[in-house]
């Protein structure tokens, strides 16, 4: 199947005669060069991922507790709900110039955009996870005289873990989008810079190769998240 797809790519690209389309073989050569020739992909990835890691970590650390709290407290939940709705609906891209104005062309600007992309999905899913805890389990724990603390650590949080992880996975994907978005839009650095540069130099094979690297990173990170999830919450699946 993969072979069929790659053949299709190769043939279609050759037939297309479009200056923007690279063939599969050219893309592979470019990928090799990016890794072992000029080796630029490593530095770009490292640079980009600094914003990703920081932004995602901050998002997780704020959104998970907030989601748990909103899952518990109806008032907090209702107070946050208009902002949740806005953040879910609003495209972040137009806000990039604002982050740049606030933080300059710095790592902080990139991190803040990553957070804007990622944080809401982690929050929403964590909250939903707490909300959907099986009430019979909570009742059971109450019936056994469990303290609220026990109920939280033994019932509520473990039941919310699958939804929470789903949120973290979505958030991770969104964080990657944010990372690339700033780099493409304003702060030309990392893989974004690489992409724009090769695009302007009309080297589509390098553009394609860079894209493949980012997609590969996305899939790898998600697989890693799944792996961690299975370790943390093996009862789920």
């Amino acid at each position: 199947m993969l072979v069929a797809f790659l053949t299709f790519w190769e043939v279609a690209a050759r037939l297309a005669h479009n200056i923007g389309i690279a063939t599969f073989s050219d893309t592979m050569v470019a990928a090799w060069d990016l890794m072992f020739g000029n080796g630029r992909i490593w530095e770009a990835m490292l640079n980009s991922n600094a914003a990703l890691v920081l932004g995602f970590a901050i998002s997780a650390v704020t959104a998970v507790p907030l989601g748990l709290a909103a899952g518990r407290s109806r008032i907090l939940d209702r107070a946050l709900s208009p902002y949740t709705a806005i953040l879910l609906a609003i495209p972040v891209a137009p806000l990039v110039p604002i982050a740049i104005t606030a933080f300059g062309l710095s790592l902080a600007a990139r991190v803040s955009i990553v957070i804007l992309f990622a944080v809401i999905f982690i929050y929403v899913n964590t909250r939903a996870g707490v909300r959907s805890v099986d009430q019979r389990l909570v009742e059971m724990a109450h019936a056994f005289g469990a303290s609220e603390r026990t109920i939280w650590t033994k019932v509520v949080i473990p039941s919310a873990v699958p939804a929470m992880f789903a949120g973290l996975r979505i958030g991770l994907g969104r964080a990657l989008t944010g990372m690339v978005a700033v780099e493409l839009l304003l702060v030309a650095t990392g893989v974004g810079k690489l992409l724009l540069e090769y695009r302007d130099r009309l080297q589509p094979a390098y553009v394609f190769a860079t894209v493949l690297f980012v997609i590969a990173e996305a899939l790898l990170l998600l697989e890693l998240a799944r792996f961690i999830e299975r370790k943390v919450a093996p009862w789920n699946d």
Partner: peptide, 25 residues
């Protein structure tokens, strides 16, 4: 079976990365 992996990869991968590609094309 034929399309599943591509659809899923493109669903989770940052779509924005494709914009320069489309622009090039």
């Amino acid at each position: 079976a034929a399309l599943d992996i591509y659809v899923n990869a493109l669903l989770v991968a940052p779509t924005i990365i494709l914009i320069p590609v489309f622009f090039a094309i």
